[in-house]
Simulated scan of single mutants.
Amino acid sequence: MEPTHAVLDSPIGPLTAVVIDGGLSGLYMDKQRHRPAEETFGAPTENRETFAAVAEQLDAYFAGDLTEFDLPLNMRGTPFQSRVWAALQEIPYGQTITYGELAVEIGKPSASRAVGLANGKNPISVIVPCHRVVGSTGDLTGYGGGLERKRHLLDFERKTLGAALF
């Protein structure tokens, strides 16, 4: 099946959602590092049903009502990237992990640099939460969508969690 895409509004700017074979294969911010060429996204869809669940879950996330996404994903990458991307999905909402800790999680403790590269190539921003990975000192480091967006997403999640505690 050919890819199709739709541009969705969000508090962090427009997000281009790409679906292939019924699964979300990309969610890209504008001006995102490693963003594929537009022509790889396929035709814009006229069928909004294809993207309804993605839009609904993103709206619920940005409203502070959803902490875990449940969408069919169709991510394409190397076996190593796939392991990293699967591990990203296990990082709890509002929490962070270092690149080194993530490398240990996937059984490759000396591969923190490779984990960082795979993290940077994550094709599904926000939903596969690469923004929850920080440097070894806890500092915010590289983010394909820019550090300002990374800070916004982490602050938003922590604020939402804090509000839920009371």
Rank of each mutant, 00 (worst) to 15 (best):
A6P: 08
T50W: 01
P44Q: 14
D65C: 04
D9A: 15
D21C: 13
L154T: 01
G144F: 04
S10Q: 07
R76V: 15
Y143T: 11
E148R: 03
A87T: 14
E38C: 06
R149E: 02
Y143C: 10
A111N: 14
I127P: 02
L117S: 09
A17N: 12
L8F: 06
A163R: 12
L58R: 08
D30V: 14
G144Y: 03
G116Q: 11
Y143M: 07
A164W: 07
P92D: 01
L73E: 08
D139G: 10
S82L: 15
L24T: 06
R35V: 06
A60L: 03
L71P: 02
V115I: 05
S125A: 14
I20V: 15
I12V: 13
W85V: 08
Y99R: 13
A60W: 02
Q32G: 13
P14H: 08
R35W: 09
L117P: 00
W85M: 12
I97A: 06
A6F: 14
E148L: 01
V128L: 03
P44H: 14
G144T: 06
R132E: 02
G77N: 15
P36K: 03
E2G: 10
L165W: 12
G42Q: 08
I127E: 03
E68C: 01
L8G: 08
H131A: 06
G23S: 05
G64P: 02
N74H: 12
E157W: 00
I12F: 10
Y28C: 06
N122G: 06
D155Q: 05
P92F: 00
A17S: 14
E39Y: 12
G13M: 10
L15Q: 09
A55F: 03
Y28T: 10
T78A: 10
P92H: 00
A118Q: 08
G162T: 03
Y93Q: 00
K108G: 12
I127Y: 04
V115K: 08
N122A: 07
V128Y: 05
N47H: 11
I91Y: 02
Y61R: 00
G142Q: 01
A17V: 08
A114Q: 10
I124K: 04
D9L: 15
V18H: 07
G120W: 02
M75K: 14
P129C: 01
A63H: 03
G162L: 06
G142N: 04
L15P: 12
G94S: 03
G162H: 02
P92S: 00
E39Q: 09
L161P: 01
S112Y: 15
V115P: 09
V134M: 09
V134A: 05
G94F: 02
E105F: 13
G100E: 09
T50Y: 04
Y93S: 01
K108W: 15
T67V: 02
T45S: 15
V84L: 10
I97F: 00
R158M: 00
H131R: 02
T45L: 09
A37G: 04
A111I: 11
V104N: 07
Y99N: 10
D59C: 04
F51C: 00
L165S: 15
T4N: 11
T141S: 11
H5F: 10
P44K: 13
E157C: 01
M1H: 11
P79W: 07
A17L: 10
S82G: 13
Y61M: 02
Y93T: 01
